[in-house]
Nucleic acid binder design. Sequence first.
DNA 1: TATCTATATAGACGATTATCTATGCAATGG
DNA 2: CCATTGCATAGATAATCGTCTATATAGATA
Lengths: 122, 122
Amino acid sequence: MNPLSLTTEAEINARAMSCNLNLQSRMSTQQAERMADIFRALSHPVRLQMLDLISQRNGEVCGCDIEQHFTLTQPTISHHLKVLRDCGLITSQPRGVWVQHCVNTQLLDAVRDLLTTLYSAE
Amino acid sequence: MNPLSLTTEAEINARAMSCNLNLQSRMSTQQAERMADIFRALSHPVRLQMLDLISQRNGEVCGCDIEQHFTLTQPTISHHLKVLRDCGLITSQPRGVWVQHCVNTQLLDAVRDLLTTLYSAE
DNA sequence: TATCTATATAGACGATTATCTATGCAATGG
DNA sequence: CCATTGCATAGATAATCGTCTATATAGATA
């Protein structure tokens, strides 16, 4: 492309597009994978509502409280809680027969902040 | 459970747990589904890095700029862009042979805000 | 000790996802 | 008008996910 003679529509488009910018991602592949794991855990409506329930009475919520809120079997609820736990979005402590669940607000804060930097202009 | 005689460990645990809270999600099922759709689109490292690239030069990025950044075939890149477009995270306008991509920062702002209310204590 | 209760695990199975190759299409340029 | 280029679509296939039933485990209670 000759910058001194931008005449055809294609050349004008080419200038507007600035093709081959050689852009660089500000996010490393490792960072992106970690973020993606968290977003995958958040990508199910039941798990989002679970987080909502748990956060309302953080540390005072057990599985049966959650279970009665959905029309799902107990193993399925247990599975969703495990997905949240495995990526660090909640922590779970056994208390006798029950298990207490807490939201990891620090992690969610970090996600929110990363989300902001992700799409901010350079 | 008799509230007047909390003696055994089980009863103490039961009190601590406050089982059967009858919690209510502050998020409707429809809201949760919409949120989950967006998080699902964000749940792939390539799509996260794509958003990062596009946002750096919003409206001046075409598919080939993105393509050269990954070791993936063109149809796969096209697929990921479609996933982002279908849930409203980017918009795409044809410019001659190219297609310009823009990040929908309004939507991402809304997601960030919803994320905050999602896990804030009541 | 036997039983109940809250939870976890294993395995099955259908649905969805990520990737590829092959192909189509529309705009550009010679 | 033909070749090229950027992008989309179709179809195949392997991997992952969401849900279930069945079963195991561990603490509590009688």
